[in-house]
Design a protein around this nucleic acid. Structure first.
Lengths: 223, 223
DNA sequence: AGAATAGTGTCTCTCAGACATTATTTG
DNA sequence: CAAATAATGTCTGAGAGACACTATTCT
């Protein structure tokens, strides 16, 4: 959405989306190539201008919809960036959203976009590197007090898969018995009748309880 | 900032600020009267349009600067609201900030704005009630894992004053000995040589340690 | 039978929460 | 000396974290 300011300058109001997904034992982010003519290459967060009659969240959903199955997306507003010089030669305000999608909801690439594992990120354009770093911090943080982790998994999953998800995002190993005790005590998942068979002993499948309290009150630290 | 959209509609980009302060044993919010001609009365959050060359945070500071001493303000972006119909007859996107000011940094009223204790709030205009409720939730939440509480107090304060601040915001009584033990163990405040004298025994004044780690890693709940 | 993965219980130590008395000042 | 507020320590119970073995399936 192009915004005419009180005087005569124009401003662009857009949304961008940081899309996280888990694949091949790594947390990945979806980036699209910059379309700038002069600058040779470069990658940026998917985004588009906000249209007249849509809400910000609808715009973010639109930005997603060519890239992933938007019915399976967790979407949350992250932050709004509006420094006058953040994009050269163009006053642009970006409302940035943060999305989690399970691996099976990815669409096959329909354009030039690509998934990048976090440790193989190219240097993103403009302030998108900063935005990405903030989104990752928020993801790690939320994982610890809310149930967003489930948004990266299919509907039914094994406890090992769930633990693995946590380990990848947090970047550390967790103890299996403590993990199971705590996740079961939290009362947010329930058994299904199904098993997943594979190389070793088949594993019980669990599902997220839709009626679960998704956020737990943190224990106070400042008293 | 008035934004011309890709077609021909206009959009207004503005900032609003939820300003909290503590006085007379209550948490208060600053509201200004609506200037609408048709609607008789009504109160809203202070705000103004974003100007061409300023950042969003600078705009928020400008919105504050007639109301409180902006050198003593804690300011943080809260959320961006942009539903197409949130303001009748005007597509308006508001980047909302959240401010904490100590009581002594309030300016005497220079216009029609007024401080309202939270339990005597008038029904705010548009979606400002919803915004306020969200800001309060965020304040209570942040109080528990970060050191924002100090932003409502003067530079030097007694432990009783600090405890009182927490009690008002959280809306519950706290145990004095546990409060002191924990706040001192957290290692975020330090003694000053000063005492505050009053009705009873004089109390030691403390100050916030500027080098303190302002946010503590929460203990994990989802493991 | 061996390889691979799933699944299970106990102990210790830290810390949150409940609780009552003494100390210092003013009028 | 009475009233007001500041300051201080202990005990108990819950839960986080460390730790190793058995169970089930497939090849």
């Amino acid at each position: 959405m192009v915004v005419k300011m009180s005087a005569k300058q124009e401003l662009l109001l857009s949304v961008n989306v940081v899309i996280f997904s888990l694949q091949e034992d790594a947390l990945q982010v979806l980036l699209t190539p910059c379309q700038e003519l002069d600058s040779s290459a470069g990658w940026q967060l998917p985004g588009l201008p906000v249209e007249e009659r849509e809400s910000l969240e609808q715009a973010a959903m639109r930005a997603l919809s060519d890239l992933v199955d938007h019915h399976e997306v967790y979407l949350e507003q992250l932050y709004t960036y509006g420094e006058p010089q953040r994009i050269p030669d163009c006053r642009q305000v970006s409302v940035v959203y943060f999305a989690l999608v399970p691996a099976h909801a990815r669409y096959p690439s329909c354009g030039a976009e690509r998934w990048f594992p976090l440790d193989e990120l190219p240097a993103p354009a403009h302030d998108h590197g900063e935005i990405l770093a903030y989104a990752l911090r928020r993801l790690r943080y939320k994982l610890e007090y809310s149930a967003v982790g489930f948004q990266l998994l299919p509907d039914e999953f094994t406890l090992s898969e769930l633990q693995h998800t946590y380990e990848i995002i947090l970047g550390e190993k967790l103890d299996k018995r403590n993990f199971r005790r705590r996740i079961l005590q939290a009362d947010i998942i329930e058994e299904t009748p199904h098993l997943r068979t594979g190389e070793g002993r088949p594993a019980r499948l669990y599902r997220y309880r839709p009626d679960a309290v998704a956020e737990v009150k943190a224990r106070r630290l400042f008293p």
